[in-house]
Design a binder for these strands. Structure first.
Lengths: 293, 293
DNA sequence: GGAAAGCCATCGGCAAACGAGATAGGTGCG
DNA sequence: CGCACCTATCTCGTTTGCCGATGGCTTTCC
């Protein structure tokens, strides 16, 4: 049993046929058949049931499949580890929440790019759920998400603590009156966003129900419309005064218990931490270095 | 880069020489040289420094080495997973503390062996520290140890809660007087045992210092000598009445906080849980099944 | 200083494995 | 029944891998 055998095996399992797998592997069908047969002989039992429309996994094949993926992942990771000579370089794919990007990351991105020109940084934004999935599937090396996550395959470190607040049009004094108005609109970044769920909970707790949610794709659009009085939103308070000037929107604090959100950095427990990632985390905040250990 | 290349690589790294590795791999030296050179070409950088006494790993080689072990482990595990058709069979190596064996396991061993005759069960006893190391090194599939362990690579489940007590010669009424005696001897199973540390703490807290520790290798020897008045020991209370008859030694309870010890079952988070292991855990205590999930 | 031992790199011969193409056999569909 | 689609098997070059022998290098021990 060798890694290349498992690559053949995985391709057959995925495509459901020897011929299709051969196509995908850029070889011919007879070749695939032979390798699979050899693998089956080696393991002492059939991995596929053959039938007229292709093949399907046997019970033994199903047990083997996850290992095929693991071996292939580990080999790729080994190659990256060897290539990584301690000087940050190569591709680095990081995930982040939109708000974290605006608040914590974007101010430092230029700096990082200038400092490590040989790193090809990709920053993916998405919801906490999407990012977790991406890290688990090894599509992204790590991500800043809304914590706590508490997943056995993920290592997580708290890196930022934010305080959420309601934002309204400037000059609004009586938040409760606004919340009580019949046609209150809440503007959120994405409907699946974790802040949106939090917002709904908080509103419900104050007896505000049936709020209409609008979904704007960018923070800029949200703050512009909130400032213009279209509706309210809930975002980290430190966006005001940092990224956005004071006075653009009205700020209404929440009780500490409701306001607190922690941003954690997650990565696969079993994955290699590249030098590029280490450097990135160190650059974001010197106190965050522990996330790379 | 293939799994067999990495096997060659690991052998060379371990033996420190191509010729020695060839010997170990049952092949010739020229072969090893070629494979290593090919691997280096594939990875684009040298993995070994050559010198007159053999070879040593370069920095890149050091980075690769852990992956070689991981690949080989994963392949072996895959084979086991494929062979494991759900009916418990094959080798099963379990670790356990001596006391846990006596108290919880030994009564069920015969039953398990009769129920699953095709499982080759090996039970290794040792200290918590030794067993943890064994699990991490994959020498044993899982182990019952003194918890909590709290290691990122290990999954742990509390399976038993024991209460420790002092044991003395039968008929001893005044434990404090005994503890105050000048030539008090404490008998422990092994000096590295976790109960021994606990015992020392408890004695210190009561102002008893400078106790001589004797190390007897078996529980039987300990209980015999304690019963004869040679010294005291500290063991799970439920040994009395279960494994040993009441009256063989004197029992002196401890306060609940000091007495409580939990026995946890640990296994590698990333390792395959064989059907044999599942069956074993289910047989030990139906409530323990969660440890296998 | 010179012989010997230990080590790695390289080369040529040979066998096994591999990849490609062709063919046969089986099944479902119109 | 013919066609489309699938897998199994066979043959034939080519490639790869393994082996044994040889040579160059360094260290060690007369």
């Amino acid at each position: 049993m060798d890694a290349s055998d498992l690559k053949f095996f995985a391709a057959v399992a995925r495509t459901g046929g020897m011929a299709r797998a051969a196509d995908e592997l850029n070889t011919v069908q007879s070749n695939v058949t032979t390798r699979i047969r050899r693998l089956e002989e080696d393991l002492g039992q059939p991995l596929f049931d053959r039938h007229s429309r292709g093949v399907t996994l046997t019970a033994a094949g199903k047990r083997l499949l996850p290992y095929a993926a693991r071996i292939s992942d580990t080999l790729a990771e080994a190659r990256r580890a060897v290539d990584d000579d301690g000087r940050p370089q190569g591709p680095l794919v990081i995930g982040s929440l939109e708000t974290t990007t605006a608040l914590r990351l974007s101010p430092r991105l230029a700096e990082f790019a200038a400092l490590y020109p040989s790193v090809d940084l990709t920053l993916r934004t998405g919801t906490t759920r999407e990012l977790i999935e991406g890290v688990l599937a090894r599509r992204i090396e790590g991500a800043f998400v809304c914590g706590p996550v508490d997943h056995p395959e993920l290592a997580e470190t708290t890196v930022f603590n934010e305080r959420l607040c309601f934002m309204t049009a400037p000059g609004v004094r009586d938040l409760d009156a606004l919340l009580g108005s019949a046609d209150l609109k809440a503007i959120v970044l994405r409907l699946g966003c974790s802040y949106r769920q939090r917002m709904e909970e908080i509103l419900t707790r104050r007896g505000v129900v049936g709020v209409r949610f609008l979904e704007f794709g960018t923070l800029e659009a949200i703050v512009a419309c909130v400032g213009a009085g279209l509706g309210i939103t809930m975002l980290p308070k430190s966006l005001i005064g940092g990224v956005w000037p004071v006075g653009r929107v009205g700020v209404h604090d929440l009780p500490a218990a409701e306001a607190a959100v922690e941003t954690v950095f997650i990565r696969r427990r079993d994955a290699y931490v590249s030098s590029a990632l280490k450097a990135f985390l160190a650059g974001v905040d010197p106190a965050v270095r522990s996330a790379a250990e």
